[in-house]
Design a protein around this nucleic acid. Structure first.
Lengths: 138, 138
DNA sequence: ATTATTTACTTAGCTTGCTAAATATTTATT
DNA sequence: AATAAATATTTAGCAAGCTAAGTAAATAAT
């Protein structure tokens, strides 16, 4: 069945991508997934952990742990919100800002690699289909 | 950039799929990923841990741990190979065979869900593109 | 035959990701 | 004002997945 093949392809592509990202990120002393968290801070520095859980689509303890390890490695730091004492805001350090370029370069390379041999029209179509699939999962 | 969108879509789809599988598998007392391991045994019972690492495309310690927890929960059992003393073979228990149907049903439902609204021709095309992408990653 | 290398697996220790339960602060109720 | 409920985060504990380093058995080299 083709539907089954599609599910298996997606499974394999995502796990293989993850593995390759993992390898490349190691050189920057980062773990897979941490690049996505930093990306949210590049877009808006100082967002709350709650906003991170929403944007990363994960659970609060995951953010707590990720931020904690990123803090230990000096990519980010935390500061309590001055108005709401419950809220913890996450900020980039210089080191956290500095890895932006190599990470974006890495993403770019990976995109090129994965889409090699696929025509421009097919990329557009693929994007539409994936958008539909993403919507279907919500 | 559309290439960047595609990468992000794949990221989101796979993590969302994983999350939903996780939820459904909990009812069967299984963790996400364990369904894939069991699947290999349905195809061929009694394969070695080495074969599992190849087929699951993961590292030996991952298989060791997964098999260990699946053994603890009585889905599989291990037996040393009679010829080669290094080799450990993994076998399904009755319980491990019994979850095949609900798991395959779950996969089937998820496939239907994710491909809703995508035409038959587009599914064929999507499958071809994904196949290409998978090859690109090797 | 003995030693060295390869192969299959395990152990220890890490991070992501989860759930369930706890803490602390803020807001809503009474 | 005192109490209850909601919100943001943390802690504890689990499993997947990884790397690096260890064990044990089989094979190759001397």
């Amino acid at each position: 069945m083709i539907d089954n093949e599609i599910r298996e392809h997606i499974d394999k592509i995502s796990s293989q991508m993850r593995r390759q990202y993992s390898e490349m990120l190691r050189e920057l002393d980062l773990h897979v997934g941490q690049d996505n968290l930093l990306c949210k801070l590049w877009r808006e520095d100082g967002i709350t952990q709650m906003q991170l859980t929403e944007q990363l689509n994960c659970e609060p303890p995951t953010v707590t742990n990720m931020v904690k390890t990123l803090e230990k490695k000096c990519f980010v730091y935390r500061k309590k919100d001055s108005v709401d004492g419950r809220v913890s805001r996450v900020y980039l350090t210089e080191k956290g800002s500095a890895v932006r370029e190599p990470i974006e370069q890495m993403w770019c390379n990976q995109q090129e690699k994965i889409l090699k041999g696929i025509t421009a029209e097919n990329r557009v179509l693929l994007n539409e289909i994936l958008q539909q699939m993403e919507k279907n999962l919500r």
